[in-house]
Simulated scan of single mutants.
Amino acid sequence: MNVNGLQAEMQAMGLEAQNTSRPATGQQVSADFGALFNDAVKSVNQLQSQSSDLSTRFDQGDHSVSLSDVMIARNKSSVAFEATVQVRNKMVEAYKQLMNMPV
């Protein structure tokens, strides 16, 4: 186990965290979250497209695509979609809680 490398990495991360010149604003955080969420949705869309493509190729008799490849791709896209839906549900729930807070 390389403890020195891990320690050096942790120290570098600590210095980086301390050297923030200005605090993150709400606008900056929302832009970062928006970009992150957009990338996640694009990733889910890509997984679903790959799954659909493999399924179509298998249905058309492409011998380079096996049934296991199709099933794995479908399960990956299904899990990714369900995770995205759960994140959306949590975000809606958090928004509702914020809106119901007394001022």
Rank of each mutant, 00 (worst) to 15 (best):
V85L: 14
Q60H: 06
V3I: 09
K90E: 15
A80S: 02
V41Y: 08
V87A: 13
S78A: 03
V65A: 02
N89R: 11
Q86A: 13
N75W: 04
S64R: 12
L67V: 10
R22W: 05
F58N: 10
G26E: 06
Q11R: 09
G61F: 00
M13N: 11
E93C: 08
G14W: 10
Q46T: 13
S77F: 00
S77W: 00
Q97F: 08
V103A: 15
N89V: 09
S43C: 03
N100Q: 11
V41D: 08
K76Q: 05
G26W: 00
Q27C: 07
A83G: 15
S64H: 06
N38R: 15
V103C: 11
S51C: 02
L15A: 12
Q27M: 11
V41S: 07
Q97D: 10
F81N: 11
S43F: 12
D32T: 03
D59V: 06
A35S: 12
S30D: 14
A12C: 03
M10C: 08
N75A: 09
D69Y: 02
A12V: 00
M99R: 14
S49I: 02
N45L: 08
S66L: 02
Q18K: 12
A35F: 11
N38D: 12
V92W: 00
L47K: 14
S43M: 06
E93L: 15
R74Y: 04
R22C: 07
E82W: 09
L54Y: 13
F58Q: 09
Q60K: 15
N75G: 03
M1Y: 08
V70F: 05
E93H: 11
Q60M: 14
G5L: 01
M101H: 08
Q28W: 01
N38G: 11
M99E: 15
Q97A: 12
S66R: 04
Q46S: 13
E16N: 13
D53C: 03
E82P: 00
Q50C: 03
Q60T: 09
M101E: 14
N2P: 10
Q11V: 05
V87G: 04
Y95Q: 15
D62W: 05
A80V: 02
A73P: 00
T56C: 07
V79S: 07
T84R: 11
E9H: 04
G61I: 00
V3Q: 10
R22Y: 11
Q11A: 09
P102S: 11
V79P: 01
S66Y: 05
T25W: 02
M91Q: 05
G14I: 10
Q46C: 04
Q7N: 07
Q86C: 02
A17H: 04
G14N: 13
T20A: 11
N89G: 09
T25A: 00
S77D: 01
S43T: 11
L47P: 01
A12P: 00
V70S: 02
